[in-house]
């Protein structure tokens, strides 16, 4: 269980409370500036709210040593920045850092386990063919998959991703969504900040809509993400077309 109680950060979040369960994909939605990324960073333990607490299985996140927290919660930031032109496998293996012993710290893993987790993450993101390729020779979609695989290599119980589908074309976005859903089916909690409402409607088990730093709606997408809500929050008249699971959003 990853839960937030009365999270408040001045002018960014106002009294946000929610409890997330494992095994499902939760989408955090909202217009620009609604506080989506701030909420995700709080849930990942990277931002400490001025009021309220985030707790993992009942223990406040601030009480976890950073590396212990990092072994439980994987976080994929929005910007795909990579400083050196490393190979895909080297990049993915960075996800093992929280498990490896820092100097004077006991490792929580073995080289064999690191190899296995890296190979598993590469396979999950369909990157085996690219493992020895430098990042500079990947397309944007391949690089997004490599960065996602980096998070998976840490085998976290929770997978938090900030707009993982930004900059991806249709096919690559669909492929990444399918792979993230597969992670949820394996029992991980997957939390995604998304802009594309149709993706959230069709693939998330639960949506949390933020507006001005507060929760405006929370629930299964078919009931929570109504046309009226979209018009209220985003200010655009909209209606859903199609059947559940294959919805499209018509604007205007």
């Amino acid at each position: 269980m990853l839960s937030a109680q009365n999270l408040t950060l001045p002018s960014r979040l106002h009294d946000v409370s929610l409890t997330l369960g494992p095994g499902e994909v939760t989408a955090i939605l909202g217009p620009n500036g609604a506080g989506k990324s701030t909420l995700l960073a709080c849930l990942a333990g990277l931002l400490v709210p001025t009021q309220g607490t985030v707790a993992l299985s009942g223990t406040p996140l601030v009480q976890f040593p950073p590396r212990t927290r990092a072994r439980r919660i994987g976080y994929l930031p929005q910007s795909p920045e990579v400083a050196w032109d490393v190979h895909v496998e080297t990049l993915v293996r960075l996800g093992r850092l929280p498990w490896q012993g820092a100097p004077l710290h006991r490792p929580h893993t073995s080289p064999a386990e690191d190899d296995a987790a890296t190979a598993e993450a590469l396979a999950a993101m369909d990157l085996e063919a690219f493992r020895h390729r430098p990042l500079s020779r990947l397309s944007g979609g391949e690089r997004a998959r490599a960065l996602a695989a980096r998070v998976l290599a840490g085998r976290p119980q929770w997978l938090l991703a900030d707009e993982p589908l930004a900059n991806l074309d249709l096919a690559h976005a669909a492929a990444l969504v399918a792979r993230l859903k597969a992670q949820a089916h394996e029992g991980r909690g997957v939390v995604l900040v998304l802009h594309d409402l149709a993706t959230a409607m069709n693939h998330a088990a639960r949506v949390i809509v933020l507006a001005n730093g507060a929760v405006a709606a929370d629930g299964p997408p078919e009931t929570a993400l109504t046309a009226e809500l979209i018009e209220n929050i985003w200010g655009v008249p909209a209606r859903w077309l199609g059947e559940p699971g294959a919805r499209a959003l018509a604007l205007g």
Partner: peptide, 19 residues
């Protein structure tokens, strides 16, 4: 190891447990 984590940027490095 901390410098390696920084390959991914400051935020991602912190999410990997970097102090």
């Amino acid at each position: 190891p901390g410098l390696d984590a920084l390959i991914l940027g400051a935020t991602a490095a912190r999410s990997l447990g970097l102090d």
